[in-house]
């Protein structure tokens, strides 16, 4: 069972990965600094498979990909938010970090609740209820299927995206 780490509205990439901690590209080092000021115990308490649930505009601000990378390297299996900032969402998809837009889950869960997330179908089960997230775009689905944008372009080139648009 995955546990929920619940965050509020407008969580910026500065909150996820402050500018003073991202002078590295090493995923393990970035994981240690994930939410280091916003929620200093995050790195110690998060376990592989846990889920971040957040309010509006998750990942706003700087385009730094260190932010979704640090979340992924922390072992988080999915981020479910009411809405995402555009660049963060695309970065997460590119890295293969599952991101699900879901309007209703946020108000239905508390920190520490247990949830089951089906990232393929975008469904979340929490407290006996099932929540359906928004379907990703065709391009996002194609990237997710390949594992990451790098894998997709490396193995299939732009043709892989041309096929689905």
């Amino acid at each position: 069972m995955a546990r929920v780490f619940r965050f509020g509205d407008g969580i910026s990439t500065d909150a996820i990965m402050p500018g003073r901690y991202n002078l590295t590209t090493d995923p393990a080092a970035l994981a240690k600094a994930c939410f280091i000021e916003n929620r200093p115990d995050f790195h110690e308490t998060v376990r592989p498979g846990d889920v971040i649930v957040a309010g509006n505009n998750f990942g706003c601000g700087s385009s730094r990909e260190h932010a979704p990378l640090s979340i992924k390297a922390s072992g988080v299996s999915a981020v479910v938010a009411r809405s995402f900032a555009r660049i963060f969402y695309r970065n997460a998809v590119n890295l293969g970090l599952p991101v699900i837009r879901c309007a209703d889950l946020y108000d239905a869960v508390q920190d520490g609740d247990e949830v089951v997330v089906d990232t393929e179908h975008g469904t979340i089960v929490a407290g006996g209820r099932t929540f359906q997230g928004e379907a990703p775009s065709a391009v996002a689905r194609r990237i997710s299927e390949a594992g990451s944008l790098v894998e997709l372009i490396k193995n299939h080139g732009w043709a892989a995206i041309e096929e689905v648009v």
Partner: peptide
């Protein structure tokens, strides 16, 4: 690879900020 790449829009240029993976892909293609 910076969100404020939108700045160039003032010159009538379509410009947008992206993450590093997208930018790495554009450097190659």
């Amino acid at each position: 690879a910076d969100s404020h790449s939108t700045t160039y829009g003032a010159l009538g240029c379509f410009a947008t900020g992206m993450g590093s993976t997208d930018i790495g892909v554009t450097m190659a293609t």
